[in-house]
Amino acid sequence: MHPGDVYETGFDESTDRSIDADAACPECDGNVVADGGERHCTGCGLIVDDYHIDHGATAWSAPESNKDPRHIGAPRTATMHDGGLTTQIGRFRDGTGDQLDGARQRRLRRLRTQHRRARHGSKRERNLEFGLQEISRIVGVLDLTDSLDEQAAMVFRRAQRADLLRGRSIEGVAAASVHAACRCTGLPRSVDEVGAVARVTTERVRNAYSVLNDELGLPAVPQTPRDFVPKFASALGVAARLRKRALELAEFAVETGVANGRKPSGIAAACLYHATREQGQDWTQQELAAVADVTPVTLREGWQDLCEVLHDVESSRTATTEGR
């Protein structure tokens, strides 16, 4: 059977068809060369024959290509223990869409059972799948991005390869991996936020993250008050000018040392509180402290220190101006 009878475009590799350049050009008897999967004449440019097989990947995610992507499937991903190359066994219909009879459905049920048992070659793979599923659950609850899910999965895989799961709960290491991915990307997600949706206590998540940070050498970025200001401002729905002023105060607090030794989220809430007071807003310390997940005392102490430094800077500017 000719390959064109089966495939509408191109040829299959199993046809053993090849291209050589022995014949002469049928038009001008010129020299015929083979290049790029085709034979063409160097004299008149006539393409005598072509046979091109694209060995590259198909653009499955390109909707403008007008190609059927069902034979390709999704790309590989680190969020699944098998890299995304999972076999799915149907239940009620075959590949053509026809209804299966009872005997075949029972056979497929037995096949699914055996497939489920054979998916894991060892307990290590089973633990990996459970940990990656827990990471995906936490990422979904916290409404984080798919890219962060990938990064957290890579951190968990590194932890398993370094044998850091021994003696620790898989849930705790999975939650710590999510927090580690947030820290490495600069997202303002604290351990308390991740621990609130984890299936273990926050203290165990904190301990697991400490181990990951020490043993894996994570490139964690130190959190600053500026990282938390946009999050708190969006939660409160304040105006853009207040957010801009709070960001300026957050940078000022870091430069002057007000934020040294203090919780970044508390200083961010204090900066936002000071910005609202300057604009005559009626946000209370209790409301801002609840958004920042700190106590009103923490917010008030940071705000008072910020006010003192602002007052000193303003006084020195006034004295310099009068001296001139």
Rank of each mutant, 00 (worst) to 15 (best):
P3Q: 10
V6T: 14
Y7A: 06
D16Q: 06
R17E: 11
D20I: 10
D20R: 09
D20G: 09
A21D: 14
A24H: 09
C25I: 07
C28H: 10
G30T: 03
G30R: 02
V32F: 05
A34V: 06
D35I: 08
D35R: 12
G37I: 09
E38C: 02
E38D: 03
R39V: 03
H40I: 02
T42R: 13
G45M: 04
G45T: 05
D49G: 00
D49Y: 03
D54L: 06
G56D: 11
G56E: 10
W60F: 13
W60V: 04
S61G: 08
S65T: 14
N66D: 15
D68T: 05
D68N: 13
P69H: 06
G73M: 09
T77Y: 06
G84Q: 09
L85R: 11
T87Q: 12
R93L: 09
D94G: 05
G97S: 03
D98V: 09
Q99K: 12
A103F: 14
R104D: 14
R106P: 00
R107S: 12
R107W: 13
R110A: 12
L111T: 11
R117H: 12
R119Q: 13
G121Q: 13
L128H: 01
F130L: 11
L132W: 05
Q133C: 05
S136T: 07
V139K: 00
G140H: 10
V141W: 11
D143P: 00
L144Q: 04
S147W: 14
D149Q: 11
A152L: 04
A152H: 03
Q160E: 11
R161D: 15
R161K: 14
L165W: 04
R166D: 12
R168L: 08
R168G: 02
E171M: 08
E171A: 07
A176F: 04
A180Y: 05
A180V: 02
A181H: 03
A181F: 09
G186D: 10
L187M: 13
L187H: 06
L187N: 04
P188A: 04
D192Q: 10
E193T: 07
R199V: 08
T202Y: 06
R206N: 10
A208C: 14
A208R: 00
V211M: 09
L212A: 01
N213R: 08
E215Y: 11
L216I: 09
G217R: 06
G217E: 12
L218I: 07
T224V: 10
F228K: 01
F228Y: 08
V229W: 02
F232Y: 06
L236R: 01
G237T: 03
A240N: 12
K244Y: 12
A246N: 01
E248H: 07
A250Y: 04
A253D: 01
E255P: 02
R262E: 14
K263Y: 08
I267D: 02
I267G: 01
C271W: 03
A275G: 02
T276Y: 08
T276W: 08
R277A: 15
E278R: 11
Q279A: 15
D282H: 13
W283N: 01
Q285D: 08
Q286E: 15
L288R: 00
A290M: 09
T295V: 09
V297I: 13
T298M: 09
W303I: 02
D305G: 02
L306I: 03
H311K: 12
V313S: 11
S315D: 15
R317M: 14
R317G: 07
T318Q: 14
T321N: 13
E322G: 03
G323D: 15
R324E: 10
